[in-house]
Every structure is written in C-alpha cells, then in structure tokens.
C-alpha cells in the first residue's frame, strides 16, 4: 500500500493525538514526541508524519501535500477549507466563547478582538449583530483589559487565564474537539489506507466513551 502522509499539529493537540494513535495500535516510536524533525517517516505503520503549525494543517491537506491531518474544529471553521471532515477524535476538548469584563454592557459600536476573525464575524452576523472584528495573534485577553475591544472571542480550556485576569465567559459559542480530515483526492485514491486509519481510530474513541 502507498504511504499515507499525515499532517500533525505541533503543540497542545500533539501529545493527545499521538497517544490516540498508539492506543489504536499504530506503531509510533516513544522518543518521537520530543523530536525536532519536520518530516518523520514511520515505515512500521506505512505513514509519514508532517509536523505543522496547527492553523496550517487544513492548508496542507487541501493542497494534497498531506493526505490526512489532525486539526481542531476551531481552526477548521476559521480556515473553511475544502477537505473531508471524517471523525471527531474527541481529544483536546475545550470551547469557543465570547468573553468580556463582568460588568460588560451593550455598547454603541461593539468591537471584538480575536484570533478567529472569520468565525467571529460569522457568529455575530448570524445572530443579527453588527460588530467590528480586530484580528490579534496572541494574548487576546489583553484587549478588553486595556480598551482595545469590549469583548473577545477565544478558546477556553480550564478558564484559569480568564479568572486570573478578571474576565468572564459571557456566552458559550460551541464546543471544540480535534478532527481527522482528509484531502478530497486522497480520500478516494488512497481510500483503503484512509478508511483503515478511520476504523482503527474510531474503535479507540468508542472505547473511551
């Protein structure tokens, strides 16, 4: 069978994803988590891992340089790429929320700071609110504290950062987990390998539930 190229997100999701793969009997070497290599062949599993920045995973998969990939639903919604969303892996669970100061009130020209401009503006538009979106790349929680925006849209995992900065979740938008995605051509050209990976992962996920 042909080698399956898997785009793996570096960082938060990675450890959980590689544990899931191991639980699904996909032979991943143990020292692999600390490697700095960008392309890691795993001949035992007939796979090749491509270590990518999480937001870039859907791009690699859409262009077909990776056959499948693992990515958070948040990134998937923001990037809106033409890929197959095959399985909810149920890992890296957190939620997307609208966040602000406890005394937040409706303002005349609402501004929302976020790492997810597309997702945020779509969310508010669907609810009939017109807001201005400011794109930030990190430390989003700063924005309402120093008056850049009156609210933010961001991911909440434990809520600790929010508490320590005196912010609260005003609205929970949706919950986020990691997904297995596939390129539209690979899904058909390498269907046997993709389907096998799906089945293996699915059986582990069902056991966990």
């Amino acid at each position: 069978m042909e080698i399956l190229k898997v785009a793996m997100p570096k960082g938060r999701i990675f450890k959980q994803a590689s544990n899931l793969f191991r639980a699904a009997d996909i032979p991943i070497p143990d020292d692999f988590d600390d490697s700095r290599k960008l392309i890691i062949p795993i001949p035992e599993a007939n796979m090749e891992f491509i270590m990518a920045k999480p937001v870039d995973v859907p791009t690699y998969v859409e262009y077909g340089v990776a056959d499948v990939g693992i990515v958070g639903k948040d990134v998937l919604m923001e990037e809106n790429r033409d890929v197959y969303e095959l399985i909810d892996l149920g890992i890296a669970r957190c939620r997307m929320s609208v966040i602000g100061l406890p005394d937040w009130k409706e303002v005349m020209n609402p501004k929302v700071a976020t790492k997810y401009p597309n997702l945020a503006s779509q969310y508010f538009r669907e609810r009939g609110h017109q807001v201005e979106v400011i794109k930030l790349n990190g430390s989003i929680e700063l924005a309402p504290l120093i008056g850049l925006s009156d609210r933010i849209v961001d991911m909440v995992e434990t809520g600790r950062t929010l508490r320590e900065n005196g912010l609260i979740e005003l609205e929970e938008m949706f919950s986020v987990t990691s997904r297995l995605i596939a390129n539209r051509v690979s899904y058909r050209m390498k269907n046997d390998s993709v389907q096998q990976l799906c089945d293996q992962l699915q059986s582990v996920i069902e056991m966990k539930v």
Partner: peptide, 9 residues
C-alpha cells in the same frame, strides 16, 4: 460540505 462529523451528529 464533506462534513461527515456534522452529518453523524
């Protein structure tokens, strides 16, 4: 939209 997760949900 090729969203099988959404379809199953």
């Amino acid at each position: 939209n090729k969203n099988y997760v959404g379809y199953k949900q």
